[in-house]
């Protein structure tokens, strides 16, 4: 600290506490709402203190069938989300680490072209090519499948560039020593390169897991069969009630369950998470 300004320190703490409160407020409200019975919402104001219906709410939400919009057990949605997030994270890491390896450790015709093709994916987020991408997936018969949910999303320029940077910082001599030690390309990749990229892979996994878990538009497009709904995409369908007031306690319980896994990942692996975030810079 440069000099002492008591009032500045107090102000800093007040700002931070206010920030934490604002950031936590919506989640607090959601958690509280999920502990009440549906009848508690009729009074005209959201309850602000926890109720005693938590166990019942969560139990019925996880099982499903509480109403017509919530016929799918949340457990299924959680499972789908988990599968999608893990497949996307692993898929992106695998194909990116392989392409970065090819680009850094080999020289071959059309290398530059391959690099630019990967680069271009940065400029084409799903949102800008929604309709034709949907058509391709439909033509390939991948609607309502895990393949359709994940494969179209696993190309990754950012991950490829990250691994490329990591590989470029690994001394050339390591590969030369390995060659003299009789390691071929794939042996070197497995025995030396992958172990040396371990923390980068872990950090990237955290970021990509969250990315996959939080997908919204894509699952909405690709899944019509409720058995493939992911929780983040499913919650919207629940809240869209035409005929009656939504079942707030169930919706909020679902929201809490939807954010719990990635939030736990971020808090538990904060260090890796920050590393992954700052290194991929998006």
């Amino acid at each position: 600290m440069v000099e002492n300004h008591r009032w500045l320190d107090v102000l800093a703490h007040l700002t931070l506490i206010l920030g934490v409160v604002i950031v936590a407020f919506p989640v607090y409200i959601a958690v509280v709402a999920s502990t009440h019975e549906p009848a508690d919402f009729v009074s005209g104001l959201i309850p602000l203190l926890p109720g005693d219906n938590a166990v019942a709410t969560y139990a019925s939400v996880l099982e499903g069938g509480v109403s017509s919009q919530m016929s799918v057990p949340i457990l299924t949605m959680l499972k789908n989300s988990l599968i999608m997030a893990v497949l996307i994270a692993v898929g992106k890491i695998v194909i990116s680490v392989l392409s970065a390896y090819a680009i850094v450790y080999f020289r071959f015709p059309f290398r530059q072209l391959a690099f630019w093709m990967i680069f271009v994916t940065l400029m084409l987020p799903v949102e800008v090519r929604i309709v034709p991408t949907f058509q391709v997936v439909a033509d390939l018969g991948m609607l309502n499948s895990y393949a359709g949910l994940t494969i179209p999303l696993i190309a990754s320029a950012t991950a490829t560039f990250l691994f490329r940077q990591v590989f470029l910082t690994i001394p050339d001599e390591l590969m030369e020593a390995a060659r003299i030690d009789g390691a071929g390309p794939m042996k070197f990749f497995r025995d030396i390169l992958l172990p040396l990229s371990r923390t980068n892979i872990a950090a990237l996994f955290v970021i990509l897991f969250i990315y996959g878990w939080n997908q919204y538009l894509w699952p909405i497009l690709i899944t019509t069969d409720a058995g493939f709904y992911t929780i983040v995409a499913g919650i919207k369908r629940m809240a869209d009630v035409v005929d009656s007031e939504p079942l707030w306690n169930y919706i909020m319980a679902t929201a809490v369950l939807a954010m719990l896994p990635p939030v736990i990942v971020v808090i538990a692996m904060q260090r890796l998470f920050v590393k992954g975030l700052v290194e991929t810079e998006k």
Binding site: L16, G19, V20, V23, F25, P26, V27, I29, A30, A33, I46, I210, W213, N214, Q215, Y216, V232, A233, I235, K236, A239, W248, I251, M252, A255, A258, M259, P262, V263, V265, V266, I267, Q270, F273, V274, L277
Partner: peptide, 19 residues
């Protein structure tokens, strides 16, 4: 302060929509 990063935009929408 960092954990809202992990909250999906859709969920953020639902939370504030409720509030």
């Amino acid at each position: 302060l960092v954990w809202p990063y992990a909250v999906a935009p859709a969920i953020a929408g639902v939370l504030w929509w409720f509030i």
